[in-house]
Amino acid sequence: MKPKVAFFSFSSCEGCQLQALNLEDQLLSLLDIIEIVNFREAIDDKLENYDIAFVEGSISRYSDIPELIKIRNTAKVLVAFGSCSSQAGINAIRNRLRPEEANAMVYGDRAAWVETGHAKGIDEFVKVDYYLNGCPMDRREFIRLVKAAASGIPFIIPKLPVCTECKLRGNVCILEDRNTLCLGAVTLGGCNAICPAYGHPCVGCRGILPDANIEGMAELLRHHGASDLEIEHLYAMYNYGRISLLTARAASR
């Protein structure tokens, strides 16, 4: 029997779901091996019974939590879908401020009307089986994961940095060549170094590698002309949650 797949969305731009829809030609062959039962971007009918749940977005409201737990209890395989979900991603920029400060900044005198607070990755609340990192997530990885889950074999993302794929593509290194501040060395690869390949720096959207040399990276960025503030901003764009934890850990050593 084809596994039933459902998509859910919390605080996000829903860009990752759109990315899945963008598969177009491959989407049809995917439907040969899975059945999609819940997909707000594409279908209206919903089923409350599914095997694989793709959860997009960060958790930023108390009311999100029971919903997330329900998904966890229903799905056999739960996937953090995109960087909002895997690491709180870009949403975590607001975590630098106290919740009420950020809310007042955005919603002004109507701040009390909206329930929203610090953004968190979903694994702060439930067990996550697989991560599809990236903003948006990578379509080839998505297909690989679906194939693995549908045939009951583990899905593995090699823990390689972006630099590896950048080098293998034969790119000119923009950090060396133009002092463009790039986080490729400490960021999980799998995107085929798409940003540096087109002359843009890696901003770490796929998340900082678990054993990354954060201090060494900061040191070499300084050598390439970065100020401490620039380094902080670079890390904070997608990895505020991770980095504040890491620096706290480093300080306690």
Partner: peptide, 13 residues
């Protein structure tokens, strides 16, 4: 070891 950020470039090239 403190300086190296384990990017892998030195061996790939």
């Amino acid at each position: 070891g403190k300086k190296c950020v384990a990017c892998g470039s030195c061996t790939l090239v």
